[in-house]
Design a binder for these strands. Structure first.
Lengths: 216, 216
DNA sequence: CAACATATGGAGATCATCTCCACTTGTCAA
DNA sequence: TTGACAAGTGGAGATGATCTCCATATGTTG
């Protein structure tokens, strides 16, 4: 993590090969149909080598994911530098959906791995989260966006989009989610026409002990 | 699926035992730490029997999930009968978060299994989706909610909440997502202050061929 | 209470995962 | 260059979870 021990030229090559193959296989969606050992074969390395570099499927996924995240973060930074904050945020979110759409297989695979109880990936996405948080914060400062909702909520919505691969109308719905989120992010209407009889209106000052959430 | 072949009394009992144990284990979050065979032991049945009833972990999860969904749908129906549509929708969504919160382990486990490429679960949730769709449709008819966004988007957001278990601030963020969605669902502001330079504003008349979504 | 269908359990076959180590390949100092 | 040491490799097999099979037990029906 901290120590970037200089990898031997040899090792570097193999590692790259593994990652390249992983990308392919992920995108083709066949990652889970493949014995991990066979995956090694496919990449042209021995089992031992595979395990040395990536002890688990998740470790492999994490590495691939890192690349993705880096790209995404780059884009966020670029947008933020070019556009008014609110537009940058919108552009980023819509661009993200475009990207997922273009690489369905990869997105699907990563989402699946992600859902497994490997918080490793969750950790990997901190950078992404930071980027989103920045975008939102800038938009808030600009006054275009409400300040009573956490950027984490936006991350959750993105999670949803990623996790809901395999919905037949994915693309349209994903776009709709972004629309809802962006519209919801504008300053809330001042007259609150819908006042839920349930829950606390959605904020921090959490519920009392009685609320244990069983449905009746 | 179609044929409800009358199960032998015997079998019924075992099946129930398995489901009951599954619920417990799911909620305790220890499902994945358990050998599937040992799970059979735990429920007091032989391996063969377990496999006869539920050929895979997913099949088991699906059965448990069915119960959950039934409860949820019930609640949706009840709310819809009692409250104005918009309130019913809000109450349902907030109640859902409460429920998930109260049964974290179960929600976590189901979400994980769900993410695996078993569309079986996705299929199981059709009923739930129908319930949400109904709630939204009623609210639209009542005029409280925009009609240009599909209920599927709301499902996606819910997915996100479910999938993003293990976020440290889960509860607050989940509430925020619901808030965003509910606010976003109100009629969109008529002057569109934020006009994304990217994407199509989020609707059906989809993007031209050039858009293949690679980030630049 | 036959006689038949249906269901059971668990011993072992099967198969993916991962370890281990004898061997190969790169690196660096002289 | 080359020798010597460290770093990396591959794949044969141990390991351990999953799932099948079937002799036996248990309901069910006329």
């Amino acid at each position: 993590m901290t120590t970037d021990k200089p990898l031997r030229a040899d090792a570097q090559r193999k590692r790259e090969a593994l990652l390249a193959t992983a990308r392919e296989v992920f995108d083709a969606g066949s990652f889970f149909d493949l014995r991990f050992d066979d995956f090694a074969r496919l990449a042209g390395v021995g089992t031992g080598t595979l395990y040395r570099h990536f002890p688990t499927r998740e470790a492999l996924a994490e590495a691939v994911y890192h690349g993705e995240v880096a790209t995404l973060c780059d884009r966020a930074r670029r947008l933020q530098a070019t556009l008014p904050a609110a537009e940058a945020l919108a552009a980023f979110l819509r661009g993200m959906v475009d990207h997922m759409d273009a690489h369905q297989g990869l997105a699907r695979t990563l989402a699946t791995l992600m859902a497994d109880r490997s918080s490793a990936l969750a950790e990997g996405s901190r950078a992404l989260e930071q980027a989103v948080t920045d975008l939102v914060a800038a938009a808030v400062q600009e006054g275009a966006v409400r300040d009573d909702v956490d950027a984490g909520a936006v991350m959750m919505a993105l999670h949803g989009i990623g996790a809901a691969h395999d919905r037949p109308d994915w693309r349209a719905e994903a776009d709709d989610v972004i629309t809802l989120v962006l519209d919801g992010l504008r300053h809330p209407l001042h007259h609150r026409p819908v006042r839920p009889p349930f829950g606390n209106g959605g904020h921090r000052d959490v519920a009392p002990a009685n609320s244990q959430g069983d449905l009746r």
